[in-house]
Amino acid sequence: MTGEVDMATADALFAAATPAGVTGATLDLRAVTFFDSAAIHALIRLAERFPGTLEVLPSGRVRRVLDISGLSDQPWLKQDRG
């Protein structure tokens, strides 16, 4: 994903990550510049859909929003790799 994940695009994010037959997902959000509560809701839905098989690679802005939201310790949120 690139750009903004918000009320207008969060459902598309969820749909893209959940095609039929998929049992896990890796979301590369390192190029996301805006992330709102609708985006957080989509991540929570994905975590419920893919327990133990979801990975989220956050941008700094995404990580900040998840930190503020109290979600920074979720197992699906991956640490920076560099």
Score class of each variant (00 low, 15 high):
residue 1 M to S: 11
residue 1 M to C: 05
residue 2 T to I: 11
residue 2 T to F: 10
residue 3 G to S: 04
residue 3 G to D: 13
residue 3 G to I: 09
residue 4 E to S: 06
residue 6 D to R: 01
residue 7 M to A: 09
residue 7 M to R: 13
residue 8 A to G: 03
residue 10 A to P: 01
residue 10 A to G: 00
residue 10 A to Q: 01
residue 11 D to M: 08
residue 12 A to E: 14
residue 13 L to I: 12
residue 13 L to N: 04
residue 13 L to Q: 10
residue 13 L to V: 13
residue 13 L to C: 10
residue 14 F to W: 10
residue 15 A to Y: 05
residue 15 A to F: 04
residue 15 A to G: 00
residue 16 A to F: 03
residue 17 A to V: 11
residue 17 A to Y: 02
residue 18 T to M: 11
residue 19 P to V: 12
residue 19 P to E: 09
residue 19 P to A: 13
residue 20 A to T: 14
residue 20 A to R: 12
residue 20 A to Y: 04
residue 23 T to R: 15
residue 24 G to Q: 07
residue 24 G to W: 04
residue 27 L to E: 05
residue 27 L to F: 06
residue 28 D to E: 10
residue 29 L to N: 12
residue 29 L to K: 05
residue 30 R to M: 07
residue 30 R to Q: 14
residue 30 R to F: 05
residue 31 A to G: 12
residue 31 A to L: 13
residue 31 A to V: 00
residue 31 A to D: 14
residue 32 V to D: 10
residue 32 V to S: 11
residue 33 T to S: 15
residue 34 F to R: 06
residue 35 F to P: 01
residue 35 F to T: 01
residue 39 A to Y: 00
residue 40 I to D: 02
residue 40 I to H: 02
residue 40 I to G: 00
residue 41 H to D: 05
residue 42 A to G: 08
residue 43 L to M: 04
residue 43 L to W: 02
residue 43 L to Q: 02
residue 44 I to D: 03
residue 45 R to K: 15
residue 45 R to E: 07
residue 45 R to Q: 14
residue 47 A to M: 03
residue 47 A to E: 04
residue 48 E to M: 04
residue 48 E to L: 06
residue 49 R to C: 09
residue 49 R to S: 11
residue 50 F to S: 05
residue 50 F to V: 05
residue 50 F to P: 01
residue 51 P to Q: 10
residue 51 P to D: 06
residue 52 G to Q: 07
residue 52 G to N: 09
residue 52 G to A: 09
residue 53 T to L: 03
residue 53 T to D: 10
residue 54 L to A: 06
residue 54 L to V: 08
residue 55 E to R: 15
residue 55 E to L: 09
residue 57 L to R: 15
residue 57 L to Y: 08
residue 57 L to M: 15
residue 57 L to Q: 12
residue 60 G to F: 01
residue 61 R to P: 00
residue 61 R to F: 03
residue 62 V to P: 05
residue 63 R to W: 03
residue 63 R to A: 12
residue 64 R to F: 07
residue 64 R to N: 12
residue 64 R to P: 01
residue 65 V to G: 01
residue 66 L to N: 05
residue 66 L to G: 02
residue 67 D to A: 13
residue 67 D to R: 14
residue 68 I to T: 13
residue 68 I to G: 07
residue 69 S to N: 10
residue 69 S to P: 02
residue 70 G to Q: 05
residue 72 S to R: 11
residue 74 Q to P: 01
residue 74 Q to M: 14
residue 75 P to K: 09
residue 76 W to D: 11
residue 76 W to R: 07
residue 76 W to L: 13
residue 77 L to Y: 03
residue 78 K to C: 07
residue 79 Q to Y: 02
residue 79 Q to A: 15
residue 79 Q to E: 14
residue 81 R to P: 00
residue 81 R to I: 07
residue 81 R to G: 02
residue 82 G to L: 06
